[in-house]
């Protein structure tokens, strides 16, 4: 009962916030609705017993990717009217992408003969919330059967990481703002200040 209520809560909120991502007028609001959609999707995964994937979704997408999205949207001065002007022009393309995704999902569900998902129960009898969890299973599969694909994904990520550094790195000769931390730490008050007690009316020479 509680699981069914939770399922409908998460599912409705996910669909609603997904719609509001597209419909809200302010891009910052869009990103925040997107975050809510991620969060509800994670809730659905917990209900289906995939707690490891759910936590990774929150950590990676909500904790890192969406923060960057939010930043870019906040920092850029976006003209809302200009953004909405392109809506009609790009709508067919967006609809096409949506249809392709829907068809792919249907193909997976029908060809994969996916049965109904068992929702988790509070005592963890249906979905493995306690004991043998899917963390171990995913780990065992990734590092044995799919080890080469996993390594390949790692290499792709490494290449893109290096690519991002190369693309954004700029050797600036004009500004030499390097800090020598060791020198800063080694600096003591005695090196920087000198205490003098001049006689009155004499002053000090620097």
């Amino acid at each position: 009962m509680i699981q069914v209520l939770a399922f409908y809560l998460f599912a409705c909120l996910a669909v609603l916030s997904g719609a509001l991502v597209v419909l809200s007028r302010n891009p910052v609001h869009s990103v925040l609705w997107l975050i809510l959609a991620f969060f509800n999707a994670a809730g659905l995964m917990v209900l289906a017993g995939a707690e490891f994937i759910a936590m990774l979704l929150v950590i990676v997408y909500v904790g890192a990717v969406a923060v960057l999205f939010l930043f870019v949207v906040m920092m850029l001065n976006i003209d809302f009217a200009e953004l909405r002007a392109g809506f009609i022009k790009n709508a067919p393309l967006g609809a096409l992408v949506a249809v392709v995704l829907l068809v792919e999902l249907l193909v997976v569900v029908i060809l994969g003969q996916a049965g109904p998902v068992t929702l988790g129960t509070p005592d963890g009898s249906a979905a493995p919330l306690l004991g043998e969890g899917n963390t171990e299973n995913i780990g065992a599969l990734l590092y044995t059967r799919y080890i080469f694909l996993f390594e390949l994904a790692g290499i792709v990520l490494l290449v893109s990481l290096i690519g991002a550094v190369v693309l954004t790195h700029r050797e600036s000769r004009a500004i030499r703002a390097h800090q020598n931390i060791a020198r800063q730490n080694a600096r003591r008050p005695e090196d920087a200040t000198e205490l003098k007690q001049p006689e009155s009316g004499k002053g000090v020479s620097l």
């Binding site: 490891f52 936590m55 950590i59 909500v62 493995p128």
Partner: peptide, 9 residues
């Protein structure tokens, strides 16, 4: 099971 990941999330 994933208590620590939950805290990170």
């Amino acid at each position: 099971n994933v208590g620590l990941l939950y805290i990170l999330a």
